[in-house]
Design a protein around this nucleic acid. Structure first.
Lengths: 341, 341
DNA sequence: TTGTATGCGTTATCAA
DNA sequence: TTGATAACGCATACAA
């Protein structure tokens, strides 16, 4: 129970080692060029003895570098995000950065608040954002004021920042193609409200293109509220009603929707894939467990995180490369739910 | 494309408003007591115009407060952790703190590294740790040097810090009791290596106590490697072999084990609950989906996060209350997998 | 009601 | 090879 040992400062180290703090500072920053072995050793000794660590704020104040990267995700509890954050963290920590994670709950005003608070006080050197899509203006502004920004998974309307996503369009098309080849005559598109979410929109677009529907008149697009299981079930029933006598399947726009859909199908006692096929994003752990196995698309979240981190750090270090979109490959796992006998 | 607009400082605001920076500082900190409406307005105007935000490092350097709380979790990708982090974040953000999240991957040396780097440079004001259990010494040291620490979910050997967990012992006992009442004659305990993980150890202890087994000679304790599905299956078969002609069930020590066990059972084509019952931690989304529904224990991760955040912040604000363990209630969801007809 | 001067712990410039 | 000193941006004790 020591009373309250004040953290040692560079001055204490200096006086204990009987050199100036300039020398200590040199030592700490590895500038040994003109330093005698003698003093080097002495300093090392004192540093160890005091267990001295330089104060980050003083350093940051001087250098204008915090060693912090801000990460703004829409929903940290989704496997996509938590794996993304892990990828970001792994890369950043390796390079000596720490990450500040904030969770917007898909709420644009929270997003706004966090963005402002993170860059406002010079807190972070760069930003990785999984945006709600409703703060393009603010992001633009922050970017033009000099904060390096990288978008993860969801793009902005105008390409302005490096954007790491997966090949949403191509993968959706390939999956629908697989459905056709499997023999499904009608495929519905189940989605949450698409709002400004670019991934959802692109998947939707790929769906419309594949079946050559006009935007206004696609018969089997269902926007569902995943928290309302009754409504989900009703949508499934409506789709079935519209496709009597045909083979049919549901494509889920994301993992949450896929879960809700499968839940509904199980509840209705329908048999997959004969009564109805199912596939979609995302390939979460349970997809193999529910008989007959749910076909699902695995996104490279971890790699997205890694790549996003790599790009912000490059920008922080001065890269002026033109902003570009990087599409990482995802993977369709075909299972029983889309395998018609 | 403005060239590079330097961030405004308090000095710029001062000169533009034609008052001293002291007055600006007062204004920024809401000390309006003796300030004329006139200057107040003028300053407000300039602040808005310049879009000025005080520099956090300078503030931190002065005040020795970073507004940052460090969160060290063992595995951010597990639902338990990501929900925990969300709870922590929600509470902290509300109180004006940001959180720095680090992920140890259950690796004690990474944990050590992050702990040191987080508190080392005065970076964080407090720490919430979901510890691997292998750094008790370091945690002790950091704590005694003045860093407020709260443990989330996993306790240390000696009670030294506030520890927020759920009622592991009681819940395990209650669940086993439910199994007995359901008619299961033998219940196995499936676990990952227990190591220094306090939650696993406590659940194990509750199991031994319930069946009055001596620590050394519990016949149905299986330590499995969840990545090795063959081995998992062999353990299940071994258990079945030992209990021919009896009703039996498996208790899984956590969500990862539960998943592996269910996967094995499905693969073996066994019927739940008749061939074998299943229950355990954790109640993740898929538990209702796998027929006949998997009985599972839901942990209050979010509340653990909230409470942990509340405690660190209280400590940061000077609370000297004696360290204590807070056990939050968890909930057993009984489903088909433990309902013998 | 407002301003002056000093210090927080570092790093960098210049001089020795 | 080393040291004195100024500066980073802000908050505060003390003066006015």
């Amino acid at each position: 129970m020591t009373p309250k040992p004040r953290k040692p400062t560079i001055d204490m180290v200096a006086s204990k080692s009987e050199v100036s703090k300039t020398t200590i500072s040199r030592f700490l920053n590895g500038k040994y060029e003109y330093m005698s072995e003698e003093t080097k050793k002495r300093i090392q000794h004192v540093v160890d003895e005091l267990n001295y660590r330089p104060n980050n704020f003083a350093r940051s104040l001087k250098s204008n570098k915090s060693g912090l990267i801000g990460v703004v995700v829409a929903d940290i509890t989704s496997p996509f995000s938590s794996i993304l954050v892990k990828g970001i963290g792994d890369f950043c920590n390796e390079r000596g950065y720490q990450i500040i994670t904030t969770n917007t709950d898909e709420d644009p005003s929270k997003e706004r608040e966090y963005l402002e608070s993170l860059v406002g006080g010079e807190m972070v050197e760069g930003l990785i954002v999984n945006t709600t899509g409703k703060n393009d203006d603010l992001l633009s502004q922050l970017g033009s004021q000099g904060t390096p920004i990288v978008l993860a998974d969801r793009a902005m309307e105008h390409l302005e920042f490096d954007t790491i996503t997966n090949n949403n369009y191509g993968m959706t098309r390939d999956t629908l193609n697989h459905m056709t080849e499997s023999g499904f005559e009608h495929v519905a598109f189940f989605t949450q409200a698409m709002g400004a979410n670019s991934s959802r929109r692109i998947r939707h677009e790929a769906y419309l293109d594949f079946y050559e529907y006009e935007p206004g008149d696609a018969p089997y697009v269902y926007e569902i509220d995943t928290n309302n299981s009754r409504a989900v079930i009703e949508s499934i029933q409506a789709f079935i009603g519209q496709t009597q006598g045909h083979t049919r399947a549901i494509f889920a726009v994301n993992g949450v929707v896929l879960l809700a859909v499968v839940r509904g199908i199980v509840e209705l006692g329908l048999k997959m894939p004969d009564d109805i096929g199912v596939c979609g994003y995302d390939d979460w752990e349970w997809a193999t467990l529910v008989p007959p196995g749910i076909s699902a698309i695995e996104q490279p979240s971890y790699q997205v995180g890694l790549e996003a981190a790599k790009r912000v750090i490059a920008r922080i270090n001065g890269s002026k490369a033109k902003a570009k979109v990087i599409e990482l490959p995802s993977k369709l796992h075909v299972r029983g739910s889309t395998t018609l006998k």
